[in-house]
Write a protein that binds this DNA or RNA. Structure first.
Lengths: 219, 219
DNA sequence: ATAAAATTTTAGACTAATCTAAATATTCAA
DNA sequence: TTGAATATTTAGATTAGTCTAAAATTTTAT
C-alpha cells in the first residue's frame, strides 16, 4: 500500500523533475522540509517499491509518474471544486486540497470531474490531467493577443535573451503567475496587467510578443 | 495534534456509548478490528490527551465528545454530498466518507454544509450535528402517520412489550432501518413498507401506531 | 467462596517515518 | 590533482501504532 507520506514524496519529485535538470536529495529535502538523511532513507524505499528508477538518478518510473499525475489530478480537481462550488478564494484552497488529494477512490475523482464539467485547468490555471494521466493541450498564445478583462497564466518565454529575462525579473514577472489583462492600448500595443491580484505592471508590445500565456480559469 | 487513528477510536467509543451500557476494551477492539492489547494501550493515550474520563470507565470527556460529533458531522455531510451532488448510491458512500471525515478545515465543513443547504439528516437518515455539536430535533411521528411514497428512518418503539418486540423481530425490523412507505390502506390503517430497499413488510395499524419514525432524506 | 473463564494489562518486539551526529563520497576550484 | 566544501549515506535513537504471548485482574457459576 502507498502511504500519504510516499504520495507526497512522489509529488515533490515530479514537480522538481519538471523544473530542475537533475533532482537531488537536498532539493527533495528542502521541498519536503525534511532532513537529507530522511530523504536518502525514503528514496531507498521508493526504489524498492518501483517508484523511482535508481537511487543515483532520482527519476520517476512509469508507475511513479502515473501516481504523481493522479495525485496532481485530484489536487487540482478539488481546488477547482473549492473555488467554483464552495466559493473559496483561489489562494485559500491549497492546504485543503493537500488533504483531499490523498482520498482514495477513482470513482469519486471521476464523479467530481463530471460534476465540475471536465475542467482543463484549476483555479491557478494549472492543467488537470485526465484519468489516464494525460495533460490537456492548452492553447498557448502570445500576451500581445490576450483579451482585456480576461485571466491568463504566464507559461513560457519566446526568447532567452539575458537582458529580456532581466527585464522580466525587474518587473517581478515569473512563470506560473496569474495575469489579468486590465487594458490593452490599441495605439502602441502596450498592455497593463494585474499580477497575482497584487501588482500592476505595464509592458510594451515588444515585450508582450515574447511572453506566452494560456487562458486560466475564473475570470 | 489528533491523528486520524485517534479520531477513529473516539468515533468508535462514541458510537458504542450510544448503544451499549458500558463500553469495554474488547468491544472497542472488536469494532476497530484491533487486538485488545492495542486498545488498552491506546486508551492510556486517550486518557493522557483528556479525551476519555478514565481508563476503567470508557466515557468521552466533553472534549472527546465534541471531537466525536465533529467527525460524525463531517462524515454525514460528506455522505450527503456524495449522494445528492455526485449521484452515488446511498450504500456506496461509507468508505469514501470514512476518508473525507478526517479532512481538517472547519471553514470547509461550513461551506459544504451551506452548499448542501443545511441538511438535518444524511442519506441514511442519521441526524447531522451542527458546528457546536448539537443534533437537530428530528420530528418523530408514529408510522401510522407516515405519508405514502416517502422515506423514513425507524427510530424508536412506543412500547417494550415482549411479544411486540418479538413480532418486529420476526418481520426483520430493526432500529435505524430506512423504510419507504409503499402504500397505506385507508380502510384499516395497515401499512406496506420497503425495508432497506430490500424486503416488503406488511404491518397492521395496531403495530404501526407503536413504531416511531422520522423523515429520512432522499426519497 | 473459590475455581474456572473471561477480560484486561504488561512486556517485548516490529514497522514506518522521522531525527541528529558521524562517516563517506562527490564536486569543484585553485 | 588534491584539499576544502558540499552532498549523501549510515548508524543509532525516537515516536505512534500495532502485534503476540504471558501475567494479572475481574467476573461468573457452582
Amino acid at each position: 500500500m502507498i502511504s500519504t507520506t510516499i504520495e507526497n514524496y512522489i509529488k515533490a519529485i515530479f514537480y522538481l523533475g519538471e523544473t530542475a535538470t537533475n533532482v537531488t536529495v537536498s532539493a527533495v529535502a528542502e521541498r519536503m522540509q525534511n532532513s537529507p538523511a530522511s530523504v536518502s532513507d525514503m528514496l531507498r524505499r521508493l526504489y524498492e517499491k518501483g517508484l523511482i528508477e535508481d537511487k543515483n538518478n532520482i527519476t520517476l518510473t512509469d508507475q511513479g509518474s502515473f501516481l504523481a499525475k493522479q495525485i496532481i489530478r485530484k489536487h487540482r480537481l478539488w481546488e477547482t471544486f473549492l473555488v467554483k462550488t464552495l466559493d473559496f478564494k483561489w489562494d485559500e484552497v491549497h492546504s485543503i486540497a493537500e488533504q483531499l488529494e490523498h482520498v482514495q477512490s477513482s470513482l469519486l475523482t471521476e464523479r467530481l470531474e463530471r460534476f465540475l464539467e471536465y475542467p482543463e485547468t484549476d483555479p491557478h490555471g494549472d492543467p488537470i490531467p485526465d484519468k489516464d494521466g494525460n495533460f490537456p493541450n492548452l492553447s498557448i498564445i502570445p500576451l500581445s493577443e490576450a483579451e482585456p478583462g480576461k485571466s491568463y497564466i504566464f507559461r513560457s518565454v519566446a526568447t532567452d535573451a539575458k537582458d529580456f529575462l532581466n527585464h522580466l525579473d525587474n518587473k517581478g514577472l515569473q512563470l506560473g503567475q496569474r495575469w489579468v489583462i486590465i487594458e490593452k492600448e490599441e495605439f502602441d500595443g502596450s498592455v497593463k496587467l494585474l499580477v497575482d491580484d497584487k501588482n500592476e505592471v505595464y509592458l510594451s508590445e515588444k515585450v508582450a510578443k515574447n511572453l506566452n500565456i494560456c487562458s486560466g480559469q475564473l475570470d
